[in-house]
Amino acid sequence: MKKFVLRLALLFASCLALAMAPVPAQAAPAFKVLAFYNGTYDAAHISFVKEAQEWFPKIASQHNFGYTATKDWNQLNSLQPSQYQVVLFLDDLPQTSAQRAGFERYMRAGGAFFGFHVAAFTTNPSAWDWYHNKLLGTGAFKSNTWGPTTSTLRVENRPHPSTTRLPATFTSSVSEWYAWNNDLRKNPDIRILASVDPVSFPLGTDPNQSWYSGYYPILWTSNKYKMLYANFGHNKMNYETNQPLSSTFASEVQNRFVIDGLLWLGGAKTA
């Protein structure tokens, strides 16, 4: 009986010690990401945003960075790189002069940017010349493929931190693909990371909105700013039922680019 009581006392003491032990402080995030979105235009873009709001927090937890999403684009007006080291544009771009001026100051001050799909769309690049012609280099929207499909992408700059884990070619997730008026190959400030491989042609399912030949950059960065742009971010949809028929994060290889790109933009060690 005495032995039993003694064991019970020792067990109680051990449990009490564990309960009173200090909880290790959680490591501070290596960097912080602020994602801007609209979430009101085109069911395919809205679907991508909903996916992003689930996928990015999981990736942030796995790779020790902070992730915050907001619809308040006015936060760009006075945003500083010390507050958020990386900014994402998921399905839109700044619309007011104050937002645009604030974002340009943020980038010139050393902030980092990751834009997706429609974040580059414009038919009037002169309305924000710095963004469309200097930062992105695209100029105006020229054409698109339809309907949304996968594409075989050819990696062009493997030494870049965002592409070191990518094979020479890989299959993207499903997306609608954009072409631009400006030829990015002729821009010395733009470094193309991946483009459509010719084996993808014809690209699209509508004969009147398909690409049959040509050169189409899909992923790129800038030599002047810490930025990445990815042309994907448009899910295939059943527009009658508003149901997504694909996922932007379905390609594990493509996800490597997003993860490693974010880590590079945030100044962390890539995966």
Rank of each mutant, 00 (worst) to 15 (best):
K142N: 13
F103A: 01
S251Y: 07
L153D: 03
P167Q: 10
E252D: 15
V118W: 04
V174A: 05
N182Y: 07
V118M: 07
L265V: 14
K50Q: 13
G261K: 07
D129G: 03
A194L: 02
Y178C: 07
A28W: 01
S151D: 07
T164N: 06
G233A: 08
H63N: 11
N157R: 01
A35P: 12
P159H: 07
E252T: 01
Q254V: 00
F141H: 10
E51I: 02
S213F: 08
S61K: 09
W180T: 00
Y37S: 14
L16G: 14
G110N: 10
L79R: 11
A119N: 05
S246K: 08
N64V: 07
Q243F: 04
G66D: 04
P198W: 08
K3H: 12
P94W: 03
D72S: 01
A21S: 13
H132K: 15
A230T: 02
P125H: 11
L166D: 15
E176D: 12
Y216A: 12
N208F: 13
M237E: 07
K226M: 07
P217C: 00
M237V: 09
F12M: 14
F114A: 07
F103E: 14
S246E: 04
G115H: 01
S151R: 02
F56R: 09
H132Y: 13
A17I: 04
Q209G: 06
T171D: 11
R108I: 03
T150M: 15
Q254P: 05
P198M: 12
I192Y: 03
D92Y: 02
G139V: 08
A35W: 13
T68G: 00
F116G: 08
N77P: 12
N64Y: 05
F103D: 04
Y106L: 00
V33D: 05
V23M: 08
C15L: 10
V33Q: 10
F121S: 05
H234Q: 14
N144E: 08
G39D: 14
T270F: 06
S172F: 09
P207A: 10
T138P: 10
K226A: 10
A28T: 14
L16I: 02
L193G: 14
V253P: 04
Y239I: 04
W128T: 08
G233C: 03
L184E: 01
G233P: 04
L263K: 05
I259M: 03
S251A: 11
Q254F: 05
D206A: 15
V155Q: 00
I46R: 08
K32Y: 10
A27I: 10
T270N: 06
T169D: 00
L265F: 15
Y212F: 02
P198R: 15
A194F: 02
F170K: 03
Y84L: 00
F249M: 00
L262N: 02
F232P: 04
F116H: 05
A27D: 11
G233D: 11
P159T: 15
D189Q: 06
G233L: 05
L219R: 06
Q62M: 12
T145M: 12
K142V: 00
Q95T: 14
P22D: 08
T122C: 06
A44Y: 03
A230L: 00
P29C: 10
V253K: 07
P207M: 14
P167L: 02
C15A: 12
V86N: 06
L11D: 15
Y239E: 11
L263Q: 09
V33C: 11
T205D: 06
V5F: 14
W220T: 11
A27T: 15
T152E: 11
Q95V: 15
F201G: 06
A60P: 03
N74D: 12
G214D: 03
D72N: 10
N182R: 12
